[in-house]
Amino acid sequence: MIFLGALCFLPAWRALRFYRVFESVKDGHEKSARSSSTLIGLAMLIFLCSPFASIAIFVSQMQPPQILGEVWEVNREEIFNTVFASSAAALIVVGTSFLLAAAWREYSLYAQRTLLTLFILPVFCAPIMLAIALLNFYNRAGFDWFFNSDGGFFWNDWTARYGLLVIGFVCRFLPLGTVWMFDAMRRVPKNYEEAGASMGAAKSRVFVAIVTPLLLPSVTGLFAVVWALCATELSLSVLLNSPGGQTLPIPIFNQMHIGATAQVAALSLTLAALSATVLALLLLLFLKLRFKLRGA
């Protein structure tokens, strides 16, 4: 709690100190500095409400504190499922959107816009409806080889557990990934590739050696965002989970309805910590890659 308090309070205190420095000065220039520090203070208040207030409430609700260890022990499978399904879905989304954006690079502007619109449109389908559509579509004998645990392939144990859930996550977030990667790829200047091609490099070599490293910050950012969105997605998980493949939002949702507050707090804290860790690590990597590219 002290750490969380310090984390929230220190930036606000610095903002207030910034305000105090300019308080005594009267002319117009400092007036704008004063209003800026007021805005910083208000922004800190918003940050305090979300996410720190939620985390503080979860920490205060965990009575006794060792319940965190017990909950981890009981829900070990759900924690693993969350990490595995989110990672698999994020990897697929990033890879597919990268390949799609690469495939559209040489299309005309009109074709690019049409394809992008077509890929964005499924976003306007609510996740609940998407889940029902996926269940109706994949619940047929033709997909037994993929979803049935006795399908005869080495992957069937995994696909029976996570297959439909990962497909749901990919369906949900692929439009976001496509827009993100397409925008990032459009920002890569064409003359870099032309310079590489003029030195006799093959097109694929130019793509791997020049374009891909320039896109790494965007790839990292997209992976982090999709991972966090998949890990906390509830609407799809409620309908698409299979026995043995439940992710953390489902026990949180179910236990909240039966009033198990301490367990819910411990699980929520675990889920928030998982997502925040992935986001923070990949954000650092993103910033590092961006500064490295700028430096180069």
């Binding site: 930036p11 610095r14 903002a15 910083i40 922004a43 940050f47 979300s50 996410p51 207030a53 939620s54 985390i55 409430i57 979860f58 609700q61 965002v225 966090a228 969105l229 906390t232 997605e233 509830l234 939002p249 949180i252 949702f253 909240m256 507050t261 819910v264 707090a265 929520s268 889920l271 928030a272 997502s275 925040a276 986001l279 923070a280 954000l283 910033l287």
Partner: peptide, 28 residues
């Protein structure tokens, strides 16, 4: 000088899904 801190603080709410936020509100 607050920009980087603000970016990090602004990304963190993405780790708290609405379900978790509602759970926190009910617990509070």
């Amino acid at each position: 000088r607050f920009q980087i801190s603000a970016i990090v603080l602004c990304v963190l709410p993405l780790a708290i899904s609405p379900t978790l936020a509602a759970t926190a509100f009910l617990a509070w």
